[in-house]
């Protein structure tokens, strides 16, 4: 199954929730903002959102800026 994450195609071998995917990438969830198919997902929705073919995920966070 293929999904798009931050503009890049990613192959998933198994069914994953967004929480699982974040864990698999060793990302710290605290500071992340997730856009799922162009919709901003609330934190509590991550664990019950199962990724499916052709989903688009934007994983964002805050960086230094002026």
């Amino acid at each position: 199954m293929q999904i798009k994450v931050n503009g890049q195609l990613v192959e998933l071998a198994e069914m994953l929730t967004i929480t699982d995917f974040i864990k698999s990438k060793n990302l710290k969830p605290d500071s992340l903002v997730i856009q799922y198919n162009y919709k901003i997902l609330k934190r509590e929705e991550w664990s019950n959102t199962i990724l499916k073919e052709n989903d688009e995920l934007e994983i964002l966070n805050f960086v230094g800026g002026g």
């Binding site: 994450v5 931050n6 890049q8 992340l32 903002v33 964002l60 805050f62 960086v63 230094g64």
Partner: peptide, 19 residues
């Protein structure tokens, strides 16, 4: 204080300026 928002680098260091 100003900050910016960017895509996380999936293969690199995760920065959290808010800390």
């Amino acid at each position: 204080v100003t900050v910016a928002i960017r895509r996380v680098d999936l293969n690199g260091e995760q920065e959290n300026i808010l800390n």
